[in-house]
């Protein structure tokens, strides 16, 4: 199914908003199910979520343990003397925190199902100034480039015959700190050149610019744009009511 990127942005806002609101594993699981269903509809490779979550794995384990230990409630499952170590309530809170991270990451993956160009178009057609839209899109685009740049430097250093793994920590830190400045300065030089070449192609000649393509909402977009926010608002109101009672 093809939806307008703006529609997807609204979906992401609804899903991650609810994820931040909910704190019980049951509801978060339901939310995750909806998100995964959406990703499947947009033919997103679910395996990729795993690779995005991987760097956060240790953080998630840490949060889980912290929640288990410091939010005890319900039945005690394991205790050291008088101190309850694992409680049912703690487990549930811990699971909730982890699930929340998973839902927000998975929802953000919906944004990966359209490209930077659609992102700019979406924002601009929503009257966001185009300079700002480009700034965001170029920042997003150059994140992987800067990561590559770092990988390149690390590769280049090793290809000059330095075995990074065998270098003792003390030396490694001096070496990295010596390389830090040139690498950052080099990245800034490159950013400056990029700005020059954008300007050389007429960026900001006029206060306005035109676009090769135009995004149009389809009927499906209107349906989703009605259903998602409506459902989200209803759920938020219900949640607040439940809290009030």
């Amino acid at each position: 199914m093809k939806l307008d990127p703006r529609t997807k942005m609204v979906m992401v806002l609804c899903l991650s908003g609810l994820a931040l609101l909910y704190n019980t594993p049951g509801r978060l699981l339901l939310l995750l199910a909806v998100t995964v269903a959406m990703l499947l509809i947009f033919r997103f490779d679910l395996g990729a979520i795993g690779s995005y979550l991987k760097p956060f794995l240790s953080l998630m384990v840490f949060l889980f343990v912290i929640q288990c230990l410091f939010a005890p409630s319900g039945c005690v499952l394991l205790a050291v003397g008088p101190v309850p170590l694992v409680t049912t309530g703690g487990l549930l809170t811990g699971a909730g925190v982890v699930l929340r991270i998973v839902v927000v990451t998975a929802a953000a993956m919906l944004l990966a199902t359209f490209n930077a160009r659609d992102f700019i178009l979406g924002l601009v057609q929503w009257k966001v100034p185009y300079e700002l839209a480009f700034m965001v899109s170029i920042a997003l685009r150059f994140l992987p480039v800067f990561r590559d740049e770092l990988v390149n430097v690390v590769t280049a250093v090793q290809l000059r015959g330095v075995d990074l793994k065998k270098v003792p920590w003390g030396q490694k830190i001096t070496m990295y700190s010596r390389l830090l400045f040139p690498v950052i300065y080099g990245a800034m030089l490159k950013a400056q050149r990029l700005a020059v070449s954008m300007e050389a192609r007429g960026f900001r000649v006029y206060p306005r610019r035109t676009y090769l393509r135009r995004l149009e909402f389809s009927r499906a977009d209107y349906v989703v744009l009605t259903v998602f926010p409506a459902a989200a608002i209803a759920l938020v109101i219900r949640h607040i009511n439940l809290l009030a009672h």
Binding site: M198, R201, G202, F203, R204, V205, Y206, R208, R209, T210, Y211, L212, R213, R214
Partner: peptide, 10 residues
């Protein structure tokens, strides 16, 4: 990118 900056029609 360049013709878009020049505000040409699509």
């Amino acid at each position: 990118f360049a013709p878009e900056n020049l505000c040409l029609p699509p």
